[in-house]
């Protein structure tokens, strides 16, 4: 009876998944495995992908660096919020969420305005007699864009985990001889691992597939896999190769979350989104 009910209730979602996820996925797979001209089955799209290995590597590399920077920046923030009074926690939590309420495009464009050659920063520099700098169209600008956009995704899961760490465990550690630094390394940090894994995943996954950030803030040498896919569909008019690349990207994301989950599964409450 209960089982029937839950099946009934989940029917809309299952239908949704079928129509908007599984069927499109099948279409993508179909395109990826067929010839652009003749439409016959082929692996040539996949084998062509080795051309894109450098782009893929670059995407992973940038995303990892961004995730790492987010972790280093986000952890102290999450820790700080988790140790405030409940009311202050709520307010700070809202503040972290706030940028996410603004359009992603707008946030990225704002950085363009700041960083471009005739942007606010460079105008300011030249106004005080300093030379203009190459800020936009650099790898650093792309990573900056990623960090700026995805930092809340790091802070929120970290906060959720840190705030749940039992204060008495910290007292127990102090009782057993831990200085504040050792309390952190021996108790707080190990207990934050689920939050770290989930934060890194939540930053890495959208960062590795982004194209807008690199298009607006990057240059010709900062092409990411998302850009490549977009170009194949829109400019090169080769949806088959684009579909193949999408499949590879998807596999990559799956593998990454899988690895993260594997790490996390030893830890208590290792929930990964």
């Amino acid at each position: 009876m209960k089982k029937n009910n839950s099946l009934l209730l989940s029917t809309p979602y299952i239908l949704w998944m079928l129509v908007f996820t599984l069927i499109p996925l099948g279409v993508v797979a179909y395109y990826a495995l067929t010839d652009p001209n003749t439409g016959v089955f082929t692996f040539s799209n996949i084998t062509q992908l080795q051309l894109y290995l450098p782009v893929l590597g670059q995407s992973i590399w940038y995303s990892l660096i961004s995730a790492l920077i987010c972790l280093v920046l986000g952890y102290p923030v999450a820790y700080f919020i988790a140790h405030q009074k409940p009311v202050a926690q709520k307010i700070l939590y809202m503040l972290v969420m706030l940028p996410m309420c603004m359009s992603f495009l707008l946030r990225t464009l704002a950085w363009v305005g700041l960083l471009q050659d005739t942007g606010i920063i460079n105008n300011l520099l030249s106004a005080i007699g300093l030379p203009r700098l190459q800020l936009i169209r650099t790898p650093a600008a792309v990573i900056l864009g990623m960090v700026y956009n995805y930092l809340p995704y790091m802070i929120l899961p970290l906060y959720a985990v840190i705030v749940k760490i039992d204060k008495r465990l910290i007292e127990a550690a102090e009782d057993l001889g831990c200085t504040p630094v050792k309390v952190f390394t021996k108790v707080v940090l190990p207990l934050s691992v689920p939050g770290i894994l989930s934060g890194v995943t939540m930053v890495f996954v959208p960062a590795v597939s982004t194209f807008y950030i690199s298009q607006k803030l990057g240059g010709i040498d900062t092409v990411l896999i998302g850009d490549a896919i977009e170009r194949l569909f829109k400019q090169a008019n080769n949806p088959n190769l684009g579909a193949a690349l999408s499949l590879v990207l998807m596999a990559l994301v799956f593998i990454c979350t899988g690895i993260m989950n594997r790490f996390g599964s030893d830890e208590e409450g290792g929930v990964i989104v």
Binding site: D166, R168, L169, E171, A172, A173, E174, D175, L176, G177, C178, T179, K186, V187, P190, L191, V193, E267, E268
Partner: peptide, 28 residues
């Protein structure tokens, strides 16, 4: 507390969930 020659058995134990029995006992 970490400089006092005093140890505590807490009201609700407060065992470290990320450590096994051996490592809990070996902690100090």
């Amino acid at each position: 507390p970490y400089d006092r020659q005093i140890n505590t058995v807490f009201q609700r134990y407060a065992l470290f969930p990320h450590l096994d029995v051996y490592d809990n006992i070996a902690f100090g």
